[in-house]
């Protein structure tokens, strides 16, 4: 019989942890609004968005960059907000799910086109992964408005959903992309 204390690396209590936390002022540009936050530098972007700015639409699913529930746009590109310290986001434009709809009251008539497509296609069930997929799609379609279904599927594979089997998510994004393309070509025709 042997006894097992905790592994030696963890047993070496962190000297920094025993000090009062060092705080840092961060200025963040989120959904076009400037926020000043004083917090520890070790706070991830998703934790600061959720707990300091109370933008709780962005969710935490795995904290190691695989599930994508925390996906937000940083300078227009979808990124994992769990794999980024808030301090790294200073000077960047951050967009969260809260910026997607026309209004801010969460009424059905205020939904943006991508959100409407998700609703029409039943692309969400529990809704926990949904903000991540929305931001992933929003960033992707902005860059690749002409993406076809296979390319959309490839991008949807970036995030995990446990409810839908993904097909409705792919279809919703495809539908939204097609509608945007049609609207663009209408505008062109009018000109």
């Amino acid at each position: 019989m042997t006894t097992h204390p905790r592994p030696p690396d963890a047993a070496d209590a962190d000297a920094l942890a025993l000090q009062a936390p060092e705080l840092q002022l961060m200025v963040l540009d989120v959904n076009g609004e400037r926020h000043e936050v004083i917090t520890e530098p070790r706070r991830t972007l998703v934790d600061v968005l959720r707990h300091e700015l109370r933008l709780t639409g962005t969710h935490v699913g795995c904290e190691h960059g695989i599930c994508g529930a925390c996906t937000v746009l940083v300078d227009d590109r979808p990124v994992r907000a769990c794999l980024m310290f808030a301090a790294q986001a200073e000077g960047a434009r951050i967009r969260t799910v809260e910026s997607l709809s026309a209004g801010s009251c969460g009424r059905p008539d205020e939904l943006g086109d991508l959100q409407r497509a998700f609703r029409e296609r039943h692309a969400l069930q529990c809704g926990f992964c949904t903000p991540g997929f929305l931001m992933l799609a929003e960033g992707f379609l902005a860059e690749r408005p002409d993406a076809d279904r296979e390319q959309i599927r490839e991008v949807v594979a970036a995030n995990l959903c446990r409810c839908t089997g993904y097909q409705p998510i792919v279809e919703a994004i495809e539908q939204c992309a097609a509608a945007r393309r049609a609207a663009r070509s209408d505008v062109r025709k009018e000109k």
Partner: peptide, 9 residues
């Protein structure tokens, strides 16, 4: 390499 959000960052 990973997926789009990983490659973006």
């Amino acid at each position: 390499i990973g997926h789009l959000p990983i490659r973006a960052r």
